[in-house]
Design a protein around this nucleic acid. Sequence first.
DNA 1: AAAGTAAGTAACTGGTTAGTTACCTATATT
DNA 2: AATATAGGTAACTAACCAGTTACTTACTTT
Lengths: 216, 216
Amino acid sequence: MEALKQTSFPKVDGREQRSKESRSRILKAATSIFAEKGPEGARVDEIADAAGINKRMIYHYFGSKENLYVEVLRHNYNKIYTLSKNAIDFADDPRVNVARAIRAYFYYLAENEAHVRLTSWEALCGGRCAGKLFPKFFDLIELEFDDIIKDGIERGFIRPDIDIRQVILSVHALCLVYFTRQEVVQSLWHEDMFSEEMLEACLEHILKLVFDGIFS
Amino acid sequence: MEALKQTSFPKVDGREQRSKESRSRILKAATSIFAEKGPEGARVDEIADAAGINKRMIYHYFGSKENLYVEVLRHNYNKIYTLSKNAIDFADDPRVNVARAIRAYFYYLAENEAHVRLTSWEALCGGRCAGKLFPKFFDLIELEFDDIIKDGIERGFIRPDIDIRQVILSVHALCLVYFTRQEVVQSLWHEDMFSEEMLEACLEHILKLVFDGIFS
DNA sequence: AAAGTAAGTAACTGGTTAGTTACCTATATT
DNA sequence: AATATAGGTAACTAACCAGTTACTTACTTT
């Protein structure tokens, strides 16, 4: 490997590689610590420790704590944006489409605590970024659902008086609440949640509610 | 008024009165600043300024920032606890009961931003208090709804396979989301929300969803 | 192999903040 | 009127934290 010293093939463990690794270690550590403590509570020293690098390097790669935070958010929004872009896949029955979309979102939240917490901090700390820098996400969701739901209304599956934006917000709320309001979940169930069966039961409840309501 | 110097009638503007007023001014200022900035972001000096008293007095009346925060939370939970205790009022139609309960909760949230934000901070900062100190609230709600919904099931208005806890959580989620996720609301509606008509439209959507779902 | 450059370190700085101290003032009791 | 006590103030302190400086190490290029 010492033979590969041409310009186009830098040493495998060379500066460039280490640099990239440092940058991504910082971003990973920052994601978990910003998610845990929020943009105010997170400490630059703690992020540096968790990333196993010197604090100076955070300023070298990201300029400031604020900038690092924005980068963490961008990463986070890109992830779900890409995911939902690729999730579009039309089936015949609009019920199947809606159910699949809800299921995908619900399990994404269940498996990405950092996403849930980062957006929650953003919501509380005045949406310093989310709303302004990454507004595309809900535009996409709206467009996506628009197609599915208009198709459903045309074919008589969905009530024509429905407001798509309300539906999106409601589904958002119904999925999110299990992960953002764990004190409430705890105080209602008095036991540990989030086994595979429990999650599936919650999702099923959401689907039943969206499809039929609670009244018979 | 200077004549009323007996033991049982202290001077109107005496120490006791001023003391009580100071205490409640601190509590009021603390509520609004803790709600705005959270338990970490709130500054004791800022609370003192807002209350128009010296910082020393906060330590005199409440001992510590943490203690003051707990007191603010206790106050907040007592308020809604008392409110929902008094809201029980059986009508014949379980639909009327459920609709009234949802309406009351929705408008309580709309009119009490501090409550919405305080519980949101609590949810994120690890429920240092809410879950442990004030678990009675959801027990009460559960008991209350339990009656209403069992009555509804017996009389064939409500689907018998429904889990009451899931219903409570869903209603909680559906009402809360308008006030906790304003970036999402903004990015869906692109306009200022929360006029009287808009609020009523949102509530109507929630009721329709709970009563019938979105499918026809 | 020498020079240049980027990665990395440790120790520091200036500003902020929870909590304290020493002191003053007004009210209530004797 | 004298004394005790609770309400109130300003200035301080010890800890903490974002960001910086001056320096060292190691890789890459010539």
